[in-house]
Nucleic acid binder design. Structure first.
Lengths: 213, 213
DNA sequence: TAGATTGTTAATCGATTAACAATC
DNA sequence: TAGATTGTTAATCGATTAACAATC
């Protein structure tokens, strides 16, 4: 028997959910009880039609003639995004980017718990970031065998990435949040990879600046 | 008479160009002279058909029976992305994220030149990052009137964003690389915005982790 | 020349938008 | 009830894939 019948939500929709989530949070904070697809469309710069389509992917609890209940919708999207099931994560690389991510990002409110930070350099090891002491990368195996993190955050140079990815996969890591310029992409199917590639983002901006002139 | 006849390249294609650029750079470094769409497709995990479609958007200089010349293609994509026309940029916010971006990102090779860093806090102002001394935000107007930066990089709290965006627009800034959790998006048409939204990216990862279990 | 691979057109697929009946 | 707004189907649009003739 197949229990997986729920029509799976397309990636295009999923990528819009965090944005809905942010706008609904603000609405909630401002005391809004309900919102119509038309109002929300004006706020977010989408079509009302798309909003209704999106929100219907997961059982419509909007009400005809009334709109959507803000708080309920906010909670539901959070639930779908998985913010209420924390996955443990290790951060590799405590350079500028690694430290910024570790201190700046509110992991817990986004379904992730940072449980370890690793670096190779003598300068970084031993320093305390948040409530975590930076460890030597040589200790990665022992740490992961005990704590079993599901996620690795890569803030390391391109050259270091291929080898580290292999080590992490062998240790059972299933998801990568990748800030390195290395492309993990399709090399390892079955693994979940979220590539950030800030350099690519900057180049896209560069293109549009040059084009518009 | 209309000189703008070049069929404009779709945003889906543009967003793939930086990735082509990276792979072609590696090929070039490894001494490859030419590459076929089939070989490149295996490397990148795309279809050969898509690669040929993409590369043809800007005048095909592949050769039948031979493939594409790596170096020439690399240069051409760089040119299209605008890496050879530097736009001046100011960075707002010298906290963890701002410092990481300023030190970590190779701006010049991506068509942008960082010419000023601004922050409000007494701790940050006066510090030197790269070759730039962090300035008070109160000096933003004077600085921009003289130097005319085209781009602003926002590494500031959500609350500070709306007001700062207005100030920057008034000073002639046309492009935003936005790391704040504020959505500049459609508020200001005519302006180019590249939103990074790291929190959204992490939530998407969170979703896929929860879903696959 | 024969083999390989592009450029390009046509077919498919998926995502967005429009329309409207159902219903609060 | 009348007005508003959803849920949902149908139409449109755009992007990806397949196919193949052109040509190096």
């Amino acid at each position: 028997m197949n229990y997986e019948l729920e029509k799976s939500i397309s990636m295009s929709v999923i990528r819009r959910l965090p944005r809905y989530y942010r706008f609904l949070y603000d609405l909630k904070e401002n005391g809004a009880d309900r919102i119509s697809s038309r109002e929300l469309s004006a706020l977010m710069g989408l079509t009302a039609s798309q909003i209704r389509q999106d929100l219907n992917c997961f059982g419509g609890f909007g009400q005809q003639g009334y709109g959507y209940p803000v708080e309920q919708l906010y909670d539901e999207i959070g639930h779908i995004l998985g913010v209420d099931t924390l996955s443990d994560a290790v951060l590799l690389g405590a350079g500028n980017m690694g430290r910024a991510i570790a201190t700046h990002m509110n992991f817990e409110s986004r379904g992730v718990r940072l449980i370890g930070i690793f670096d190779n350099s003598r300068r970084a090891v031993g320093k305390v970031i948040r409530d975590l002491t930076v460890q030597k990368v040589t200790g990665l195996e022992a740490f992961c065998r005990e704590r079993r993190p599901k996620v690795a955050i890569l803030c390391i140079p391109k050259e270091a990435a291929p080898h580290l990815v292999e080590r992490l996969l062998a240790l059972g890591v299933a998801g990568f949040w990748n800030f390195s310029h290395y492309d993990i992409a399709h090399h390892h199917p079955g693994t979940i990879v979220e590539n950030v590639h800030l350099g690519d983002s900057l180049m896209t901006l560069s293109y549009r600046l040059a084009e518009d002139k």
